[in-house]
Design a protein around this nucleic acid. Structure first.
Length: 257
DNA sequence: AAAACGTGGCA
DNA sequence: TTGCCAAGTTT
């Protein structure tokens, strides 16, 4: 849930989710339509699908228990480098190099002396993160939590609070006078209006809000460009987020059973 | 390795 | 209003 999504938006959804499906086996047994509706407007609904696939894999491959070890974790759907490290550190109390967007920014500043990290995660960043993480399990877990929180609460993307930063006297960026990042290659800002992403979001919202299958004609009302809509619905079907059924009155679309 | 993938809040 | 950004992963 937290992948690319702010904590404050996730927390209430997470609490309701964990109350409804406390164990992997509970989520594994749920109808996918219920899962997608509970996901609601968190964004990137493929994550909801993968989370359920992950729960099912945990049931099938690990007897319902979240596996230990980053290799086994990374083999689960939707679990990448960051998530495997975070679960290892925070759930299992073992050393892992946990690097999220916050930690990347903290290291870019404190160690690299630049305002913001590069658009994509580099091998050099990974090496730096590994080098500064303490060797001991407990220390590494504390380090992981501390570096993430520092980035989230103090060393923020905008208006960092250097005055209250515990590492301000060692921060390469502050020591350099907090230079701007106008030379750095910024990631292209993500287009939204008129994109497939927006269209897919509209379709998913329509299906979530409907009690059952939705006629093709009703789905068509959510988007102006028929060809684009067709392509997006097809991609949603391909992704497993939407299912098509043929009713007496024509084609219907619904969330997966 | 670049691009796709949702959504909402804030400056 | 528009751009930026948020506990990334997958192809």
């Amino acid at each position: 849930m937290l992948q690319q999504t702010p904590v404050v938006r996730v927390e209430p959804a997470w609490r309701a989710w964990m109350e409804r499906w406390p164990e992997p086996a509970d989520l594994a047994a749920a109808p996918t339509a219920d899962v997608l509706r509970a996901w609601g407007r968190l964004g990137y609904p493929r994550r909801a699908l993968r989370l359920q696939e992950c729960a099912r894999a945990i049931v099938e491959r690990h007897d319902g228990e979240v596996p230990r070890g980053e290799e086994a974790l990374r083999a689960l759907p939707g679990v990448g480098e960051y998530t495997a490290a975070a679960v290892t550190a925070f759930a299992h109390g073992r050393r892992a190099v946990v690097v999220d967007t916050n930690v990347r920014r903290v290291l870019a500043r404190a160690v690299g002396g630049v305002a913001l990290p590069a658009p994509s995660y580099t091998a050099a960043e990974r090496a730096t993160a590994a080098a500064v993480a303490p060797p001991d399990d407990d220390d590494a877990v504390l380090w992981a939590a501390a570096s993430m929180e520092l980035g989230a609460l103090v060393c923020t993307a905008h208006a960092p609070r250097c005055g209250v930063c515990p590492v301000r006297d060692a921060c390469a960026w502050r020591l350099a006078g907090r230079p701007g990042d106008e030379h750095a290659a910024r990631r292209r800002t993500q287009a939204w209006v008129g994109t497939d992403r927006q269209a897919r979001g509209r379709v998913m919202a329509a299906l979530r809000d409907a009690p059952g299958p939705v006629p093709r004609g009703v789905v068509a009302e959510v988007w102006h460009d028929a060809a684009q809509l067709d392509r997006c619905v097809a991609s949603l079907v391909e992704d497993g987020l939407v299912e098509q059924e043929d009713g007496p009155g024509g084609v219907l679309y619904r969330l997966p059973v």
